[in-house]
């Protein structure tokens, strides 16, 4: 978490190589991510964007694209669409709906489902609720907190909303001005932050 311009999105983009750092490196399983083929890396490290980008066609088309892009992956190795759709709390009849015509919250759920179709180990969520009404955002957040546990996926979520960070995470990193200010277990960070800048940020209204 961190204020606007803290570098939260930039950090996420480094984690699956949508951008490369000017210095330093990012490691996955102890190896620099640049040592993995970039396509394979991105399928292990899924990305859900702040503003959902639906591909043309139905929801099923969107999910199918995610599978097909794997190339060598056999269809039998990818999770059934209905199960993934259920995980993000969309009814099976959504499969035949035109993805572009869905509401913002529904599109964001499809984005998450699409990312899950590649069976990622890590899921990156870039302010997934920022474009949504508070009520819709709350329900999506509940999904975000639950799905990774069920699928054994590590999630890195970016947010500037304190409540979201506290509710959905076990570990929180505070960023400001492109620098790491403080990191620690979420509960400790929220109740006993050491850094004055973290405390100042936590004192701001959500």
């Amino acid at each position: 978490m961190g204020p606007s311009g803290a570098g939260k999105t930039s950090l996420l983009r480094l984690l699956n190589r949508l951008d490369d750092p000017t210095s330093g490196d990012v490691q996955l399983d102890g190896k620099p991510i640049t040592s993995y083929p970039v396509g394979a890396l991105r399928r292990r490290v899924g990305f859900v964007f702040q503003r959902p980008a639906m591909f043309p066609g139905t929801v099923a088309d969107n999910l199918r694209v995610a599978v097909e892009l794997g190339g060598t992956t056999k269809p039998s190795e990818s999770p059934p669409m209905e199960r993934i759709l259920a995980a993000v709390e969309l009814a099976p009849d959504y499969l035949n709906r035109d993805a572009v015509r869905l509401s913002g919250g529904e599109q964001q759920r499809v984005s998450i489902a699409r990312a899950l179709m590649t069976r990622p180990d890590v899921l990156l969520l870039d302010e997934p609720t920022s474009a949504l009404d508070p009520e819709v955002a709350d329900r999506l957040l509940a999904t975000v907190a639950r799905v990774p546990k069920e699928h054994g996926i590590s999630v890195v979520m970016v947010t500037h909303r304190l409540g979201e960070a506290r509710e959905a995470s076990t570990w929180t990193i505070m960023l400001e001005g492109g620098r790491l200010v403080e990191a620690g277990p979420t509960e400790r960070l929220f109740t006993a932050a050491v850094n004055p800048r973290t405390r100042a940020y936590l004192a701001t209204a959500d």
């Binding site: 396509g39 899924g46 990305f47 591909f55 694209v65 892009l69 794997g70 984005s111």
Partner: peptide, 16 residues
């Protein structure tokens, strides 16, 4: 841009 990067993030080649 968003759509293109969404493809890339799913492991697509630039051509795709």
């Amino acid at each position: 841009r968003g759509e293109v990067e969404a493809y890339l993030a799913l492991g697509a080649t630039p051509a795709r």
